[in-house]
């Protein structure tokens, strides 16, 4: 197998990952923020394990999608496009120019917010609740980045095929 086809397999794998990660983030986001995350709700984290678990799910799903998009998919996508991946910050600048992310400053701000959403660690509930509410406001932008990178791959014929998808008879047949 050539390096190029290995890279495409890796790219397709990551496209499947971000599809699932995005769906899971959207689900938890809708459930957690059905009402605003106020300081009063943050106070209930200590006594409501289900709420604490939902916050935990939101934080880890938000973080995982951002890391998969920026640290894993982006360098592979740039390579597949024939660009030489550079330092993380340079890749983000290129992603902004290519329209995959809305703004590098926002992207870095989302990353910093993640440190402020860990409820065992952040003692000031005004900060914790504002960090969660701010991350919620960034979810559409994160999902738009996922969409933009997936669309780029699709335009070039590198779309994510699901190896277990029965709508993909060729691959399914090979699996059996």
């Amino acid at each position: 197998m050539t390096n190029h086809s290995k890279m495409l397999l890796r790219l397709q794998f990551l496209l499947r990952v971000i599809r699932k990660e995005g769906e899971h983030l959207a689900l938890t986001d809708a459930r957690l923020f059905s009402e605003p995350f106020t300081i009063a709700r943050a106070e209930r984290l200590a006594t409501q394990p289900d709420l604490a678990e939902r916050v935990e799910a939101f934080v880890s799903r938000f973080s995982r999608l951002q890391d998969t998009l920026g640290d894993k998919l982006l360098p592979v996508l740039l390579s597949a496009l024939g660009e030489k991946p550079g330092a993380a910050i340079d890749n983000l600048d290129r992603a902004e120019r290519l329209g995959y992310i809305q703004s590098v400053d926002d992207w870095l701000a989302m990353r910093n917010l993640r440190n402020q959403m860990v409820h065992e660690y952040v003692e000031d509930l005004a900060i914790l609740s504002n960090a969660l509410q701010s991350a919620h406001a960034f979810v559409p932008s994160l999902l738009a980045s996922r969409q933009a990178m997936a669309a780029e791959a699709e335009r070039r014929g590198w779309e994510a095929t699901d190896p277990l998808d029965i709508r993909n008879p060729h691959i399914y047949a090979n699996k059996k």
Partner: peptide, 19 residues
């Protein structure tokens, strides 16, 4: 919006120091 303000400021300073 203290968390957002801290995050935006950190992001911009971080760029000054190459990430």
């Amino acid at each position: 919006n203290p968390a957002l303000m801290a995050a935006r400021f950190a992001a911009r300073v971080s760029r000054l120091f190459q990430g």
